[in-house]
Design a protein around this nucleic acid. Structure first.
Length: 431
RNA sequence: GGAGGCUUCGCCUAGUCCGGUCUAUGGCGCCGCACUGCUAAUGCGGUUUGGGUUAAUCCCCAUCCCGGGUUCAAAUCCCGGAGCCUCCGCCA
């Protein structure tokens, strides 16, 4: 939810944001009108309730002969309050509905345009040249005995997979590397629930336009998270945080589930786009004035992780029309996929400013001791399945082996390469 | 799955049986002031969170886990739900 005060005081700013996103500008006026109606109503109800309260007090003080008349008046007022309260409930609901329809106000520096208008900020690392026909990650993974899509489909359907042998070890190696780097950077590691209540899902903005993407467990009224962001944001719902020592940072591991509705035919091969994968996600709670700087820090940690994996990538600044509901700004990191001859999204970081926190009632005490809405930010440290796909492709060699980045070796028993038919090394770090 | 108990303004706690005096008690913590060479101690005052209104103060409304209900009036009575705890059953 955006800040209502901002809408009242500077509606043009919000209108401009709606235009930039390609959203309906008139929603701002709907919201303003609903706000005015509600406030008018609140005053009426409050005053009336005050009167009724006084009347009620008068009942017990009334002398026996006054009593019937006083009681009559109190009864009449009570009935009136009840009626007006009903109207007010409708006004509250109307305001809430209008409020929820407006996405976060975009950051000033966000590039204009839509999906194709992301601005490349920088390109890092050399795109490798291969003097042999490159194979895609699935072909490589199958040869290594690392990925089994066929049996994944047999057991769970399309877009499911088994990671086996070196593939399974790679998953743990990546998770260990991600978590240990995050811990070294001061993040609190957390294993988050993958099933959450509707409030958590709604609070993070995933039940709006994107609810098609989300798995719902109807019988128990729970949702499978698409990212641990949902659970971690919800973790501090209805709390007042102490941010006086700086941002509160979590690195969350969880499985992620996505229906991929509407992506039929897209990335149907391999691990690029699957219904389930595991992910290490960074999440940060901070004061709103620190959010933009924190966003750049998250981006930096993401970049350093890809550098550790020796993957070439580029950083793109996502255009206004392609931002998620909650994000005021978003950077994606796209890594090179040789078989596609292009960069594909591997990680993403969003500054949600106070948008999520307002709905989830996540606050902090400012320097004056007043409660303020916090800002939330999230960033992928490692989306494991897609990262495995990228690693296998980029680091493939002509003999069918795959180079293992130095940073991953401690968690793969020190091996320098994955080779078809190899005896697996025990993934025990030496000292 | 079954039975019972608990949930009060940061923490602990009184109040709930028997509705109005609750504008919620007390302690701890915290903030301010006074006293004091300093610290401590002591004394006095303040200290839930939202919303409305206002230039600001004042004031008004809501808030005793949540949602309904009864009543002129609910922390208190009734119904439903959540969370926590104990016991039984089942289970990785």
């Amino acid at each position: 939810m955006i800040d209502l005060r901002l809408v009242r005081e500077n509606p043009d700013l919000v209108r401009a944001s709606q235009r930039a996103r390609g959203d309906d500008e008139s929603l701002v006026d709907t919201l303003l009108a609903a706000d005015a109606v509600r406030r008018e109503g609140v005053k009426r109800v409050d005053d009336l309730r005050g009167e009724q309260k006084a009347a009620s007090q008068a009942v017990k003080k009334a002398s026996p002969e006054e009593r019937p008349a006083v009681l009559e008046r109190a009864k009449a007022l009570a009935a009136e309050v009840k009626a007006v309260e009903e109207e007010q409930r409708e006004a509250d609901a109307a305001l809430r509905a209008a409020h929820l329809k407006i996405a976060n106000v975009v950051h000033d520096d966000v590039p204009p345009g839509g999906e194709d208008d992301a601005v490349t900020l920088r390109t890092v690392g050399e795109v490798p040249a291969y003097d042999f026909p490159v194979r895609d990650h699935l072909e490589i993974g199958e040869a290594l005995g690392a990925i089994d899509m066929e049996r994944g489909a047999k057991v769970s359907g399309s877009r499911f997979y088994f990671l086996t042998g070196p593939g399974a070890l790679l998953e743990f190696a990546l998770a260990q590397l991600a978590i240990s780097r995050a811990v070294a950077a001061g993040f609190t590691p957390v294993i988050a629930p993958a099933l959450v209540k509707p409030t958590a899902m709604e609070g993070t903005g995933f039940l709006g336009e994107h609810d098609e993407e989300v798995y719902r467990i109807e019988r128990d009224d729970l949702y499978l998270v698409g990212t641990s962001e949902v659970a971690i944001a919800g973790m501090h719902a209805d709390e007042v945080l102490d941010l006086s020592q700086g941002p509160k940072r979590y690195a969350g591991w969880s499985s992620c589930f996505r229906r991929e509705a509407g992506s039929y035919g897209k990335d149907t091969r391999g691990l690029i786009r699957v219904h389930w994968f595991d992910k290490v996600e960074m999440f940060s709670f901070c004061a709103p004035e620190d959010a933009a700087a924190e966003h750049l820090r998250l981006l930096q940690w993401e970049e350093e992780f890809l550098q550790a994996l020796e993957l070439p990538y580029r950083v793109v600044d996502i255009a206004a029309g392609d931002l998620g509901t909650s994000a005021a700004r978003k950077f994606d990191i796209e890594a090179w996929f040789p078989t596609q001859g292009t960069y594909r999204e591997l990680t993403s970081t969003s500054d949600c400013t106070t948008f999520q926190a307002r709905r989830l009632a996540i606050r902090y005490r400012d320097a004056e001791g007043k409660n303020q809405t916090a800002a939330t930010l999230n960033g992928t440290l490692c989306a494991i399945a897609r990262t495995i796909a990228c690693l296998l492709e980029v680091h493939q060699r002509s003999d069918g082996s795959v180079h293992v980045p130095v940073a991953l070796r401690p968690w793969l028993g020190g091996v320098e390469a994955l080779t078809p038919g190899m005896t697996l090394a025990a993934p025990v770090p030496t000292a």
